[in-house]
Nucleic acid binder design. Sequence first.
DNA 1: TCCCTCGTTCACAGCCTGTTCACGACCGGT
DNA 2: ACCGGTCGTGAACAGGCTGTGAACGAGGGA
Lengths: 117, 117
Amino acid sequence: MSRNGSVLSVGALEIRPDEHQAVAAGHTLTLSVRELELLAALASRSGRIVPRAELYETVWGAPLRADDRSVDVYIHKLRVKLGDALPGWRYIHTHFGFGYRFEPERSHPFHNAATGP
Amino acid sequence: MSRNGSVLSVGALEIRPDEHQAVAAGHTLTLSVRELELLAALASRSGRIVPRAELYETVWGAPLRADDRSVDVYIHKLRVKLGDALPGWRYIHTHFGFGYRFEPERSHPFHNAATGP
DNA sequence: TCCCTCGTTCACAGCCTGTTCACGACCGGT
DNA sequence: ACCGGTCGTGAACAGGCTGTGAACGAGGGA
């Protein structure tokens, strides 16, 4: 990940939280407020395993309740949209019992994706 | 988007604010003052997600009131005229909760539009 | 004055979002 | 392989935004 002012750049993704905009391989993603905020929260911690509680507190601004699945639901929404925009790559990895890790990785070793991370 | 003096060029559109004229695929559009100004405001920010307030302040020259729908109404008028002039292309994209983004994009994957953006 | 255009404002329908459920698949430990 | 706890995912809901057609009044030209 790299920072340039308020711009987060991870793999083929460029995220500008201030402008509510995320661009994947030159194509602007259609994200809701929560989706973009969660994406930014993940991207700004790229490569780290981030606990749900940390993600929730960052995006929702409140402590995570014991049975709240909001983070999981939004992770799924992001995976779908990122998958559509950048086929052949996985950005969000699950770490069972802990949380998620954001990092570009090929979905399949033999996938013929053209552009690198 | 490209600038040449006072000319904005986005996709098949060419907008000359100084001459109060907008040309789509060689055909001059019939736009009112507000319509042209809003189109110019959008085109000059092509590819960016622009908040309603910014558009309103640029075109109307005053801060956007909380329940003012003028921008939405004019966006609709522009969409109709652009849709007529350039079928098969979408230029104005809604970003729910924020504003609009101006960028040429095919309406349908299978549309046989001849001219590119 | 009459007609027509334009900008503004309404009203209502329809779409999008955030949240919460429900249920099945998956994981790790025993 | 069995089990309890975690995750993935599709769907239902209520509320807030946006799309859209129409009404209104001001202003300009014939």
